[in-house]
Structure formats: C-alpha cells, structure tokens
C-alpha cells in the first residue's frame, strides 16, 4: 500500500503541483513588465497569422455542415426562417470557440511542444540563461501572451467564415441573398452571446500555451523526447481545454443568466 502510494499516487500529484506552479508563474508574468515585445510580436505572427488559413477554412466547412443540420431540425417545425439565427447562435456561443481551441491545440500546441522540447534537449534554453536572458519570460511568457491575444481574433474569423459557410449552404437550397442572410443571422444575437464565448478563448489560449510550454521545457531524452513532448502537448492541451470549458460554460451561465435561456 505504501509502495503503491509512493509510485502511483505521489509522482502524478507532484507533477500536477509542479505544473500548477508553472501555470501560476506564467499568469503572473504575462502582466508584469518588462515585456518581450519583439518576441511576442513574432509569436503572434506564428500563432495567429499562420493559423488563419486553417481556421478560416475550417470555419467555412463547419458552417456548411451546421447549416445542413440546423435546416433538417428546424424544417420539422416549419421554422426555416430561424435557420441563420440558430446557426449563428450555436456557432458564436460554443462551436466557434471550441473548434478554434481544438485546431490551435493541434497546430500550435504541437509546434510549441516540439520547438521548446528541441531547444531544451540541444541546451539552447541553457544557452539563453547563460547569456543572462530569463528563458521563462523569453520563451514561455511570449508564447502564452501570443496565444491569449490570437485566440479571440481567430474565433472572430471562425465565426465569420462559419456564417459565410452557413449562407453558402442555405443559398444553395433556398437561394437566400448574402445580406438578408447576415441580417437574419445577427438578428437574435446579443452582446451576452458574443462576448463571453469569445473571451473564454483567451483562457483556452492560456491553457494551450502553458501546457505545451510546460511539456516542451521539461522534455528529456533526445529526439524521442521531443516527439513525445509534441504529442503529449496536443493531447494534454485539448483535454485540459475541454475540461476547463465545462467549468467556463457553467460560470458564464451563472454570470450571464440570460444566456442559459
């Protein structure tokens, strides 16, 4: 029993605690000057700009699929007129943020895990420290900040291309015009639908970057270790994000009761 506790319970707990300390430090340092502006800008480009095509294309495809499903459901009630609004609501509140989160977990999580992992095993992180650079600020905080900035912007893009995708599907069936579709889509959207859903992606961005950075910076064991860090970053970042999402949805319902209607 004691042995079981020592080998199967203590190490994961210790790792969890270690990771939590890491996350707490990241959260503090994101808001504490001096800021590594150049490096952060470079990371925003890496994380945000270079994810744009992927997010835009995925949004468009998701919009088409959601539109087809929404039509199938609402037709039964003869409520076709509500299709654009229903799609926009689902997209903006939940589907957009979540899909962007998963896409970024994959693309950026793997990237951060592999890059920091490789820097770790080739001693480049030590080299940064040796030239008197705070490697945590330079490598981790810049990536975390970049992800927190990029996520809501990417979500806006996904929501937009999603609605365009919805219109594409709709116009193929009913020949509805673009402008009319957009007006209908936004007719029921409220501030409280839009803002909490988009802002929670800031939290997703934090979780993705912190998870991947943590696993990258603690990579060991050469090339194989780098590969592990990349894979585990994607898995851990997606799972953590989905889990935190449950809490955030509850929290948003609590803070903005009208969104639960």
């Amino acid at each position: 029993m004691a042995a079981f506790v020592r080998t199967a319970i203590v190490p994961p707990l210790a790792r969890g605690g270690h990771a939590a300390v890491f996350a707490g430090r990241a959260l503090r340092e994101v808001f504490r000057p001096p800021f590594e502006l150049r490096e952060t800008a470079r990371q925003v480009y890496e994380v945000g700009w270079r994810s744009l095509p992927l997010v835009a294309a995925a949004g468009y495809a998701v919009g088409i699929v959601m539109s087809m499903h929404t039509r199938a459901s609402l037709e039964r009630f003869g409520a076709e007129a509500l299709i654009p609004a229903a799609l926009a609501l689902a997209l903006v509140r939940e589907t957009g943020p979540l899909v962007v989160g998963l896409l970024v977990s994959g693309r950026v999580g793997a990237g951060i895990g592999a890059e920091l992992g490789a820097m770790k095993v080739t001693e480049q992180i030590d080299a940064l420290e040796a030239v008197a650079v705070d490697s945590f600020k330079f490598l981790v905080v810049t990536r975390v900040t970049a992800c927190m900035l990029a996520m809501p912007l990417l979500t806006v893009v996904m929501n937009f291309t999603g609605i365009v995708g919805g219109w594409t599907a709709e116009s193929a069936v009913s020949g509805m015009g673009f402008e009319a579709y957009f007006r209908a889509a936004f007719s029921l959207l409220q501030f409280t639908d839009y803002v909490p859903g988009t802002l929670k992606t800031v939290v997703f961005g934090f979780i993705i970057a912190v998870t991947a950075s943590y696993l990258g910076i603690h990579a060991s064991g050469g090339t194989q270790g780098v590969g592990h860090a990349a894979t585990r970053s994607v898995v851990a970042a997606s799972v953590a994000m989905i889990a935190v999402n449950v809490v955030l949805v509850r929290l948003i319902f609590f803070l903005f009761p009208e969104t639960a209607e």
């Binding site: 080739t122 001693e123 480049q124 030590d126 080299a127 940064l128 008197a132 650079v133």
Partner: peptide
C-alpha cells in the same frame, strides 16, 4: 535571486560543449 544571477552572467562568457547555438 534571478536578477542578481543575471548580472553575474553578463560578466561571463560560456562556450557549451555542443556549442548550443540558437538554431
């Protein structure tokens, strides 16, 4: 503390055995 350590490190040049260039 970290700030003091950084000040000391600025006075030291270090060549790593594997060079550790930023790639």
């Amino acid at each position: 503390p970290p700030a003091g350590l950084a000040a000391v490190r600025r006075r030291i040049g270090f060549l790593f055995q594997n060079a550790a260039l930023f790639d």
